[in-house]
Amino acid sequence: MLDFDLTVNGRRYPVRAEPRKLLSDVLREDCRLTGTHVGCEHGVCGACTVLVDGKPSRACLIYAVQMQDHEITTIEAVAKDGKLTPLQQALHEVHGLQCGFCTAGIVITFEAYLRENPRPTEEQVREVLAGNLCRCTGYHNIVKAILRVANERRDAQA
């Protein structure tokens, strides 16, 4: 067992865990942030995606002990003071989620991606979204929601 601190959503969490304990498990069990979901534990499905220093990363392919001195952001910190971000709001308004299990990973991925590329094309959105599996929606409305956010930004700038 090792003792170390994790910084998650701007808060410090003292953690006691074996070095092998996955970040996804530590977030869920030790930090009690269960919004990060575990879907495959081999980096394919994207459900567990969190931000490490602002960059999307699979929490199932990181050992929590590696994250000392890094900033983790999870889905719980995306909406500020209970106010949904434009992306979350758009997903709600165009029915971009069904069972909701993959949703956190998608929101996290695109909060980061839209900062890097605020006005992507549909093709770019689909390329990035290909890293998150959703079994319910067929992706159509997720793409629609992301493009709506991108277009609103475009309109706002115009």
Binding site: G46, V52, S57, I62, T109, Y113
Partner: peptide, 9 residues
């Protein structure tokens, strides 16, 4: 390579 999140890491 892989996907966006894979390439970030």
């Amino acid at each position: 390579i892989g996907h966006y999140a894979i390439r970030s890491r």
